[in-house]
């Protein structure tokens, strides 16, 4: 089920696997970034979501404050029942730095980073 879609972002829910997938493309301005994050938080609160995958492979740089915001709400989502979050790593040099800032915020073993979507899904089986 597609929850959101435009040129920069798609948010897709797979009800069979309880997986929420965010696919980011290009530069996503703050307003849109936070809108999608908030939508995801809301969906996790109201539905069963075991795994959140953020596919950032085509995403461009994210501001420091947006990275902080995403790190902050992840704690909330884990509280709502989310079991794990996986990132598909960005190709873009600067987005990697943005993601590192997110990673430095913590959340330990429940967050994984992968080169490909398939690896992320394989890893998520440990949380089922």
């Amino acid at each position: 089920m597609v929850l959101f879609a435009n040129d920069n972002v798609e948010v897709i829910y797979d009800a069979n696997n309880y997986e929420l997938l965010q696919v980011w493309r290009g530069y996503v301005p703050t307003e849109l970034f936070r809108e999608v994050i908030d939508l995801s938080v809301s969906f996790v609160r109201n539905n069963r979501v075991d795994l959140l995958i953020s596919d950032t492979s085509q995403q461009k740089v994210v501001s420091g404050s947006d990275a902080d915001y995403a790190a902050l709400v992840l704690g909330m989502m884990l509280g709502y029942g989310l079991k794990a979050m996986a990132f598909v790593l960005p190709h873009d040099v600067f987005t990697r730095f943005s993601l590192k800032k997110f990673a430095d915020a913590g959340h330990g073993d429940q967050v994984g980073y992968f080169e490909h979507l398939e690896e992320a899904r394989k890893w998520s089986r440990f949380f089922k």
């Binding site: 790593l89 040099v93 993601l99 590192k100 990673a103 330990g108 073993d109 994984g112 980073y113």
Partner: peptide, 16 residues
């Protein structure tokens, strides 16, 4: 995996 490789500062500066 729990961490990931980062590009070098030179690589990023070169783009800047």
């Amino acid at each position: 995996m729990q961490s990931f490789p980062l590009p070098s500062v030179f690589e990023a500066l070169h783009l800047v």
